[in-house]
Design a protein around this nucleic acid. Sequence first.
DNA 1: CTTTATCCGGAGCACTTGCTCCTGTTAAAA
DNA 2: TTTTAACAGGAGCAAGTGCTCCGGATAAAG
Lengths: 212, 212
Amino acid sequence: MLDLMAEAEPLNPARRRAPRADAVRNREAIVEAAAEVLAEQGAAVDVREIARRSGVGMGTLYRHFPKKEDLVRTVLRRDFSQWAESARLAAVDAEDPWAALADFYQQALTGYARHRAIVENLALTWAEPDLEGIQQLRRVIERLCARATAAGLLRPGVTTDDLLLLLISLGHAVQLTDECRPHLWTRLLHISLDGLRPGHRAPLPADPDQPR
Amino acid sequence: MLDLMAEAEPLNPARRRAPRADAVRNREAIVEAAAEVLAEQGAAVDVREIARRSGVGMGTLYRHFPKKEDLVRTVLRRDFSQWAESARLAAVDAEDPWAALADFYQQALTGYARHRAIVENLALTWAEPDLEGIQQLRRVIERLCARATAAGLLRPGVTTDDLLLLLISLGHAVQLTDECRPHLWTRLLHISLDGLRPGHRAPLPADPDQPR
DNA sequence: CTTTATCCGGAGCACTTGCTCCTGTTAAAA
DNA sequence: TTTTAACAGGAGCAAGTGCTCCGGATAAAG
């Protein structure tokens, strides 16, 4: 393979010039500004606000991201991965499977608090589970669930879906309370986690969609 | 006091004619249609859609309700009260304080499921607790909380705020899952309720905003 | 340096949505 | 029945928002 087409897109028959330096700078500035704004105000923000804050015109923004949703997804992919990864790391530090689960929730919800767009998207994701990112998170939770169940530390019958829905649900509580009374959602987390421990008098009602 | 002004607004010095029959009919039709639409699509709905569905022109709608929010609040007051009351009734039927609490949540969340605007408003209400309706709900929960605590059936330290936030948080889960997998939120409710029972190894972290 | 393909940026378009205005209509008083 | 004040209803206005267009600027090739 000749090196003259090694650095560009190998699939494109037409030779593409390298992107201009200012274009690269601008693209980064746009993503950075969009990440800020999305975290603050959620996905309903005006595109002009993103352009303004990144010091770039509308034309520039729309050349890099032809649809607003392209930009939103780019930012979300980035932030979502980073968020899930840091929650995962918090979990693997703990040797006790139960502590791992608790640390995961604590870390995930803390990171949640300041990113409105992630909350919106995670909830939306429930209806569209094929979205990348949710799968990543699912795998983390699946593993935590399996570990805790194997150790007998998790209530029998608790599924990955239960834990995921709990995360989304608590995420909503976090968003409501974190600014004014952050202790409230912490208390709710404790209550929910205790409900996940084994030893309760009645088994959970079955989930017919979960063969097992 | 003479009876000639007894049926109108006594505070208004100008004599007001009785409202026309068609105006009364229209007002009711508007409220009815708005309730439907708000339940289906939430408060972000187009006013034209409400006008269309109630068979009334924009002018008529806006004479009865000068701002969209006036209409929304009217509907919300009606539906919210009715919803909270039916949840309260489900609770007083049970003699056991714990069953009362469980029945309350079950009933409230079931009614929740099909009313998007109530969910939105209840969450919004957290930031603006003076809103009427939330107080009504608070009192119901306060009473349930006191009863269960007095009977020793509720985990020590659980507050009305905890129970209210749990309701809002679960409400979000209900909205996400009720259409496709309604069993999921029921399971989450069971888990949370079990976390509210006494007998857990660690006390809840204190809420500094809750003097006690 | 010159050339030119690429890029920049904001004015402006198309559409939505909350709300108003105005003309013809109708219920209720005289 | 006649009169008249209230009402009905849709066209239209103003503001917001996603997106496009095109003249001017500029980085990279020759």
